[in-house]
Amino acid sequence: MSFKNFKCVPKIIFGRGSFVQLDSVLAAERKTDDDFVVFLVDDVHRQRPLANRIPTHNGDQVIYVNVDDEPTTDQVDGLTEQVQTVSHKAPVSVVGIGGGSTLDLAKAVALMLNNAGGSAQYQGWDLINHAAIHHVGVPTVSGTGAEASRTAVLCGPVQKLGLNSDHTVFDQILLDSELIAGIPKQQWFYTGMDCYIHCIESLNGTFLNEFAKAYAEKAMLLCREVFIDDHADKDDKLMMASFMGGMSIAYSQVGACHAVSYGLGYVLGYHHGIGNCLAFNVLEDFYPEGVAEFRAMMNKHNIVLPTNICKDLPDQTIAKMVAVSKSMGPLWENVYGADWQNKVTDEMLTQLFRRI
């Protein structure tokens, strides 16, 4: 029997106001006068106070990235080339500041600076050949678990699939809950539900073990304190839940919701958070208690999901989504076990998508 040798983030700073320590973290990587850092920052922060707090030094690159759409392999390759054309040497660190999409871009660029070719060729599991540039994650939205995960999820020319590798994991993360204040309510909810769904899929999966269970159970309790109890410390709690939910799936796996959501995201362009919510809302046969509680959370926060978005789509569009979803073998194995291919049929997936 082979046990999973799981790599986790080696260095973590947690606490309100801890963003001020980013400069000292990066100072440890700066060895010579021409060493530089690349900051990939969600462009929503361009006109916000955080932009003036980024600890830049001479020679550093601050690149504002747009994540209105899901991150793509073309976007990663373009950013990588942009970094490489500015200097003859590689940066000493790549820092991602933003939500899950921005963090995934930072992870992917850090990888591609040390791995030849386009990023699409590394979509899959354990295809990365060389370690990434030192990279740091600073989430300003909580829920995706991207700060903890070993994947950078990208839409490529053929599929939506992550660069899944131990090399993808951040070298350092900085969790400052002050940075998530002021997020639009819908984004806050949809992204937070990504964390809640991570817990549901982990706890109900065939890959469940006590390691994953311990993280998922605690993250689930924190999600309830945030989205049901409206706790005074909900920002701290959601940031911790996001990390622990990511840790849970790192030693287990996500499930049916993420498999269906990947189809929605790749073909229709839905962002991961709302895509998960749209998918989860029709999965009561898979996760009855979780879906019921999810709907109660939606009601409490007056969240109304779009409906009938797939009902009248052309058959060929549905078929594309089915193909993407069906290609998520490890996710479906977590749902059904080793014989998942006998149960995940085109007909079953088509019926699910038509209900969304």
Results as ranks from 00 to 15, higher is better:
residue 274 I to M: 07
residue 121 Q to W: 03
residue 349 L to Y: 00
residue 42 D to S: 09
residue 22 L to T: 13
residue 60 D to A: 07
residue 299 N to C: 01
residue 58 N to W: 13
residue 1 M to Q: 06
residue 211 F to T: 01
residue 310 C to W: 08
residue 78 G to H: 03
residue 317 T to L: 15
residue 17 G to I: 10
residue 315 D to H: 10
residue 17 G to F: 14
residue 94 V to N: 10
residue 111 L to G: 00
residue 75 Q to C: 06
residue 290 G to S: 09
residue 117 G to R: 12
residue 98 G to V: 11
residue 156 G to I: 09
residue 28 A to Y: 05
residue 37 V to F: 09
residue 52 N to T: 15
residue 198 H to V: 14
residue 260 V to K: 05
residue 148 A to S: 10
residue 321 M to A: 05
residue 224 R to D: 11
residue 182 G to R: 13
residue 10 P to N: 10
residue 227 F to H: 00
residue 122 Y to W: 13
residue 33 D to M: 07
residue 153 V to K: 13
residue 159 Q to P: 00
residue 118 G to R: 08
residue 15 G to C: 11
residue 191 T to Q: 03
residue 36 F to I: 01
residue 94 V to Y: 13
residue 202 S to D: 01
residue 174 L to A: 07
residue 163 L to W: 04
residue 322 V to M: 01
residue 40 L to V: 07
residue 231 H to Y: 10
residue 113 L to R: 08
residue 265 G to R: 09
residue 170 F to L: 13
residue 30 R to I: 15
residue 289 E to R: 12
residue 336 Y to N: 02
residue 205 G to M: 04
residue 195 C to A: 12
residue 211 F to R: 05
residue 2 S to F: 15
residue 2 S to I: 14
residue 279 A to C: 04
residue 227 F to N: 01
residue 117 G to A: 12
residue 109 V to L: 06
residue 171 D to T: 11
residue 354 R to G: 04
residue 265 G to Y: 12
residue 340 W to Y: 11
residue 122 Y to I: 14
residue 174 L to V: 14
residue 203 L to M: 14
residue 302 N to V: 06
residue 242 S to Q: 10
residue 275 G to I: 08
residue 279 A to P: 07
residue 294 F to I: 12
residue 76 V to D: 01
residue 55 P to R: 11
residue 343 K to G: 03
residue 146 A to Q: 06
residue 218 K to F: 13
residue 355 R to G: 02
residue 256 A to L: 01
residue 154 L to E: 02
residue 141 V to Y: 07
residue 231 H to A: 14
residue 309 I to N: 10
residue 295 R to N: 09
residue 114 N to T: 15
residue 287 Y to N: 02
residue 310 C to A: 04
residue 321 M to K: 13
residue 130 H to K: 13
residue 326 K to P: 02
residue 292 A to R: 15
residue 241 A to P: 04
residue 90 A to P: 03
residue 91 P to Q: 06
residue 66 N to Q: 00
residue 284 E to A: 04
residue 98 G to C: 08
residue 347 E to R: 00
residue 141 V to W: 05
residue 290 G to W: 05
residue 57 H to N: 10
residue 174 L to I: 14
residue 193 M to A: 03
residue 62 V to L: 15
residue 111 L to E: 07
residue 264 L to N: 04
residue 295 R to Y: 00
residue 167 H to E: 01
residue 325 S to M: 01
residue 159 Q to H: 06
residue 347 E to L: 00
residue 121 Q to F: 06
residue 231 H to L: 05
residue 126 D to F: 00
residue 251 Y to M: 00
residue 318 I to Y: 00
residue 49 P to I: 08
residue 142 S to H: 12
residue 238 L to A: 02
residue 6 F to V: 14
residue 69 D to C: 13
residue 210 E to D: 15
residue 110 A to H: 04
residue 31 K to H: 03
residue 210 E to W: 02
residue 262 Y to H: 15
residue 349 L to I: 02
residue 96 G to I: 05
residue 55 P to L: 08
residue 209 N to Q: 03
residue 137 G to N: 11
residue 13 I to L: 14
residue 263 G to M: 06
residue 164 N to D: 12
